[in-house]
Design a protein around this nucleic acid. Structure first.
Lengths: 110, 110
DNA sequence: TCTTATGCCTAAGACAATTATGTATTAAGC
DNA sequence: GCTTAATACATAATTGTCTTAGGCATAAGA
């Protein structure tokens, strides 16, 4: 697990990009996908994830769809059109940030 | 200027690494060096920098030296031996984090 | 002389995350 | 049949880092 401080500020970017790459997903699924993609290094906590999903939805970047699986409820999230644009921007912004940090820290980012 | 959220958690790493690369520096000088290295994209605020310097000093990672320049006072900071080790670790940690994020976001980090 | 730059610092508040809960269903092990 | 782990949603209290807003003072340039 990574030093958690570095993760701060990246959650929305992660959620938007993962949804962009994988399409319709529900909360728990997102945590598992990120765990998998990060090789168990990024473990999203529910206390952070759900408020973030709700916030992105309130901003119109995500839309939801509730599906019943037996007696259990799943809430699927997907990007809206503005959400897709936002995902692109966030990733670009992140990459730019990393380049800048590479200069400041004088490191090569393979 | 970058989205400030992404910067969160990176301040200590920046301070430690810049001091490692440039040796003895004072607070204001650090802000200017980072501004320069980042091409004006990272502007450290004093309200964040000074508490961080004091904290790192309290942890024994930095040592200080006060110098009078005319009537003005400069407080130089430099890494201690544990501080140098910590700087190395923080940078390694940051690079690892970036690699992980590259996988999660599915982006190439040149 | 007024603004900008240099130089240190602290305090209040915002914000995002962690930690701690709460509720409930389903599958697996014993 | 019972217990535990996994699945699945969610909120609330707290923590920590940062921004914003102050405060004080010297030096240089227009």
């Amino acid at each position: 697990m990574h030093s958690p401080e570095l993760l701060k500020g990246t959650l929305q970017t992660i959620v938007l990009k993962v949804l962009k790459d994988h399409g319709k997903m529900y909360g728990y699924e997102i945590t598992q996908r990120v765990k998998e993609l990060s090789d168990d290094r990024i473990l999203l906590t529910e206390g952070a994830l759900y408020p973030t999903l709700h916030k992105l939805e309130a901003e119109g970047l995500l839309k939801t769809e509730i599906v019943n699986i037996g007696k259990r409820v799943r809430k699927y999230y997907n990007l809206t059109t503005p959400g897709k644009a936002e995902a692109r921007e966030r990733v670009t912004e992140f990459v730019d940030f990393i380049r800048t940090m590479g200069n400041v820290l004088q490191v090569e980012l393979s």
